[in-house]
Design a protein around this nucleic acid. Structure first.
Lengths: 204, 204
DNA sequence: GTGTACCGATACGATTCAGTACCGGTACAC
DNA sequence: GTGTACCGGTACTGAATCGTATCGGTACAC
């Protein structure tokens, strides 16, 4: 359940009503996200997830009322910052680092975003879960990198290109599959940062 | 039928086996694309399209064998270059013009791309139709703009930022809804070109 | 031990939708 | 007129899939 984080030190697993251990829950979440990436949101079925994790549909429906709620829970559980902790002291190197980190997750995240991109327009909870899981943390980390660069005086606070850096990074990341048929890898993104983003910021 | 372009001067409409006029066909195509934008590819139903155009399912299935083929045909029919004919003699102005043109179509095209983004992975014909309709023409036109700029000597042929211009334009176009919750309008894209693309190309 | 609460399996009803089949009606060719 | 070929409407089959209900089994609490 979504409430189980509230009551759960380790040994208390015994006290838990549910026999679904956190590890088991992870299996469910991994399975459903993988199915979403594979087949698209609409084509994901509870039966499919149940089969692939060898549990019964009943078990899934006991824990989560509906498919959207299930997927949203899975998304929330997958939340993690891809590139926090990047802090080299140089804006250019930080951006290169972010590009590299983004490129490493590119395939999985992009497929997920792609697969959910439209479903999200119809379900508020799903939309928010997606933003919290894949969008907001990255944007925040990126803005933090930029903020530090401004603070160090590497770029003017009102530099017009600043506001577009996140959109550039994620935009290029997401459209490369469409334009070139392959996911943006770290090399591609780093070259992009060096060829376009840094020059635009005046960091040659 | 897909073959009707081959046999059709004007008056020959009489000779046509089909009573589906090109205008009527347009209605079908517009309706199905609108449904795709609205509900997503998977949720589009032949029955829905039939109802919204007041024809019968039979009629649709007589013309197109399956749903993917129907949607692909609709996409192909929607093919049109958004920004050919932009040629001001200045690379910077051409790019501004392209940005403005792209921004004007942004909502419709982005929604379509979003809605089809995943379905396309499972159906080759659909994928190709989508590329031909929404991706390739724009890319080609953009590359042509850049080529002319190079030819005029406004930017070096091997300038590293050149290769990323199309990806940036379409990337920013497509992710703005995700990041900021609204489609990229012409103003946004023109400002982006001026703040980031032109500086990166050394065209202050 | 005994009881409780959850598990997995399976079966079920309801719904939705792709695609087919059949119908009577009608516009146009000749 | 008569025939042909297509139209729109409706009904149908068959396959998924949602979500519910039922059932026997089992791990853990006490």
């Amino acid at each position: 359940m979504t409430s189980q984080a509230a009551d759960g030190p380790d040994t208390v697993t015994a006290t838990r009503r549910s026999k679904i251990t956190p590890e088991r829950e992870r299996e469910f979440f991994d399975a459903v996200l993988e199915q979403v990436r594979e087949c698209g949101y609409d084509s994901v079925t509870m039966e499919g997830v149940a089969a692939s994790t060898r549990c019964s549909k009943s078990t899934l429906y006991r824990q989560w009322k509906t498919k959207p709620q299930f997927v949203a829970a899975a998304l929330r559980s997958a939340r993690q910052a891809r590139f926090t902790g990047i802090d080299t002291g140089s804006l250019a190197d930080d951006l290169r680092g972010a590009a590299r980190a983004a490129g490493e997750w590119s395939g999985k995240d992009t497929r997920l975003l792609q697969a959910l991109g439209h479903a999200v327009m119809q379900d508020r909870e799903l939309q928010q879960a997606l933003r919290e899981a894949l969008v907001d943390p990255e944007i925040a980390a990126l803005r933090e990198i930029l903020r530090r660069g401004v603070e160090r005086g590497e770029v003017a606070a009102d530099h017009p290109a600043l506001e577009y850096v996140p959109a550039q990074m994620f935009g290029v990341l997401r459209v490369r599959p469409v334009l070139e048929g392959e996911y943006a890898d770290p090399e591609y993104l780093v070259r992009f940062v060096e060829a376009a983003v840094l020059p635009a910021l005046g960091l040659t």
